[in-house]
């Protein structure tokens, strides 16, 4: 179980480092976020009746008179209890409940995009790197790779312009049609899918190329491996050589890479949600930024760090199941 322990330690270290940065960075700047929060509350006429209560809540929570280290300790302890405090704009809604209500949308959209991109990209790469792929197929498959270098939000804007504005085929914003009642109905499910098509497509278009190129390289590498040539010498069907020998090995570094790039993918998603007005936690973050809702900004940032670290941990823990050379007992990375 040394492997599991090492991964857990790394997970905790990542989360701790993220939390620490999120806690200290704002305090390094001249403007104290707590002051800013209070200032904002006082200047906004809307919440005056609540202002005293909020200020009191914050003073208590941050223990403004305590030393920064005591505040830091309390911050970490609160994180442990998933207590990120209150939104200043929507007081007394807690940050955690705001994140929680937005989370399913992000998880669904992101999960779909990552899975589709990983599958399509690696399949493309497999065909690009396979010696038996007909030339014209290879040529055709390189076409969708032109979007690889671009940020997802760019492609998103282009998609909205073409498919929503010009053709009016697909809805450009939101997660579902407000005229449909949310619930377990076919109409609602269809509406959700319809709204997810464009953002998911945008993300898949820009991320699948990376998987494809990586997989293509690995296919070329494994094609030269002695065990693949031996599999051919055994007269196995070429599909078996391809999948059980070549792809099975070529995919391993890709899965490692999935873990490494999750952070980047998540970052791209925040902007995608803003462009598509998708009600996930990226949108929450954007809205918090525009309204200077610092606790929500910090809270969402922390949840992003936590979420990505968790996903990386899951990938790490699954990995030994598919690569017998890494066992739960070894501590290699």
């Amino acid at each position: 179980m040394r492997y599991v322990r090492a991964r857990l330690v790394r997970f905790l270290f990542t989360v701790w480092l993220g939390a620490t940065v999120i806690f200290f960075v704002p305090r390094l700047s001249r403007s104290d976020p707590t002051d800013a929060i209070i200032g904002q509350l006082l200047s906004s006429g809307a919440g005056v009746e609540n202002a005293d209560a909020i200020i009191e809540a914050y003073k208590q929570r941050f223990g403004l008179d305590d030393s920064i280290w005591v505040q830091y300790g309390r911050y970490l302890a609160n994180l442990f209890r998933f207590d990120n405090g209150y939104s200043v704009v929507e007081f007394p809604t807690t940050v955690d409940s705001l994140v929680l209500s937005a989370l399913p949308w992000t998880l669904g959209l992101m999960g779909a995009a990552i899975v589709i991109s990983f599958l399509v990209g690696n399949l493309t790469g497999t065909l690009l790197g396979w010696e038996r792929t007909p030339r014209w197929v290879g040529r055709v498959l390189t076409v969708p790779l032109v979007f690889t270098a671009l940020p997802a939000f760019m492609v998103g804007l282009l998609l909205i312009n073409v498919f929503s504005y010009n053709f009016g085929w697909l809805p450009p914003t939101g997660a579902y049609d407000p005229s449909v009642d949310p619930g377990w109905s076919v109409a609602f499910a269809l509406s959700v899918i319809e709204h997810a098509v464009l953002p998911v497509t945008a993300v898949v278009m820009v991320t699948m190329g990376g998987w494809a190129l990586g997989m293509r390289g690995m296919m070329i590498t494994t094609a030269g491996e002695e065990y693949v040539r031996l599999a051919e010498a055994k007269g196995l069907r070429s599909s078996r050589v391809l999948f059980n020998y070549q792809v099975r090995n070529a995919i391993l570094p890709q899965i490692t890479r999935l873990g490494i790039t999750l952070g980047l993918i998540a970052s791209g998603f925040v902007v995608i949600e803003r462009v598509f007005n998708y009600p996930g936690i990226g949108m929450r973050l954007f809205r918090a930024v525009t309204r200077n809702d610092y606790p929500v900004i910090q809270g969402v940032a922390w949840y992003l760090v936590l979420g990505v670290a968790l996903a990386v941990l899951v990938v790490d823990l699954i990995y030994p199941l598919i690569d017998p050379r890494i066992s739960y007992r070894s501590d290699s990375d």
Binding site: E225, E226, Y227, N249, I322, D323
Partner: peptide, 15 residues
């Protein structure tokens, strides 16, 4: 059939 040179790398590591 063949017994390849360098049997070190001749077995599929994940099978």
């Amino acid at each position: 059939a063949i017994v390849p040179q360098g049997a070190m790398n001749s077995l599929n590591p994940v099978m």
